[in-house]
């Protein structure tokens, strides 16, 4: 295989009447990596994925999947799997019938894996899909996504309604299966903390715009929160870009976007300042919201939890 991107989007824009769902999106995703597509509800994640899979339409821009426009191109489409969060199934279908259909269309379908997952999720396969609970419905999508082993697999908020145990099963199986069958995975989520460690690359979308497109590892430890006496904190942070500020009397807690050197850490200790890591979730939230209005960004942190 070449190093050509698995997914390439150029200048994608999409409007719904007065709402701008996507605004000049440019992306290049490499094959065989796990990507996180992060952002708040309504940020444009699902819209982007449906355009990338030829299911939806952009008003502007182009999509290339392994170098081809996927729209109406069966050879390219068949290399992708995208089960949307609100996926509709034929009314009279039972879960096992949906899997039977998926086995027809996805050439790499692994029946054993599907069976294992059905058992792990305790999915009642003989019940009609429309009678399944939200969590069981998510499980159907997760099972199709994993067992299809498509070269590019999109998971659209796959954990909705799943309890903590089931979510862990999904993450574990994803890592396990990815290790033995590498492929391009795009994991769309607004629960960043849960998926952070699985991601190799992070794409953050907010109000239809890409605001972060970086390696997960370069984001980790790339910001630090300095807490202590307000004057000393101000002195310490100097001109580093500030992500977030909190103050309580003479105490200040400021998150800055930088990787501190050993010497700087030592100096912080001498100044009596406390350093704490900023999680990927916090970093994403802070970066996406900017530093202008701290009040709303705090609300957004809650919204994203």
């Amino acid at each position: 295989m070449t190093n050509a991107p698995a997914i390439q989007a150029t200048n994608l824009s999409k409007n719904y009447k007065e709402l701008t769902a996507l605004d000049q999106v440019n992306l290049a995703l490499e094959p065989n990596r796990i990507y996180g597509l992060l952002g708040r509800n309504g940020a444009g994640k699902t819209t982007l994925m449906s355009i990338l899979t030829g299911q939806g339409f952009a008003n502007q821009g182009t999509v290339k999947i392994f170098g081809h426009n996927p729209y109406e191109h069966d050879a390219t489409l068949s290399r992708m799997c995208f089960i949307r969060e609100s996926q509709k199934y034929p009314d009279d279908f039972r879960a096992n019938q949906a899997f039977k259909a998926a086995a027809l269309f996805y050439e790499n379908w692994d029946e054993d894996l599907a069976r294992e997952l059905i058992e792990a999720f305790r999915l009642p396969v003989k019940r009609r899909i429309k009678k399944l609970s939200r969590g069981q419905l998510s499980a159907v999508g997760v099972i199709i996504g994993l067992a299809s082993r498509a070269e590019i697999t999109f998971f659209d908020e796959p954990y909705l309604g799943l309890d903590a145990v089931a979510r862990q099963i999904f993450y574990d199986r994803l890592v396990e299966d990815f290790a033995t069958h590498p492929r391009t995975i795009v994991l769309s989520s607004h629960l960043i903390d849960e998926v952070a460690n699985l991601l190799e690359h992070v794409v953050v979308i907010d109000a239809g715009k890409i605001v972060i497109d970086e390696e997960a590892e370069s984001l980790r430890g790339a910001a630090v929160t300095v807490t202590g006496n307000a004057e000393k904190v101000a002195e310490f942070i100097g001109s580093y870009p500030v992500l977030h500020r909190d103050a309580l009397g003479s105490l200040a807690s400021i998150s800055i976007r930088t990787r501190l050197s050993q010497a700087e850490r030592a100096r912080a200790a001498e100044l009596g300042l406390e350093l704490s890591p900023v999680s990927l979730q916090q970093l994403v939230v802070r970066s996406a919201m900017g530093t202008e209005d701290n009040d709303t960004s705090d609300v957004n942190v809650e919204a994203m939890k």
Binding site: I34, D172, V175, E176, F178, A179, P182, N197, L198, A216
Partner: peptide
């Protein structure tokens, strides 16, 4: 193996 590490710590195998 790296895959065992990945599964154990629930991290990306490439990482």
């Amino acid at each position: 193996s790296t895959n065992e590490f990945a599964a154990f710590y629930r991290i990306n195998p490439a990482t």
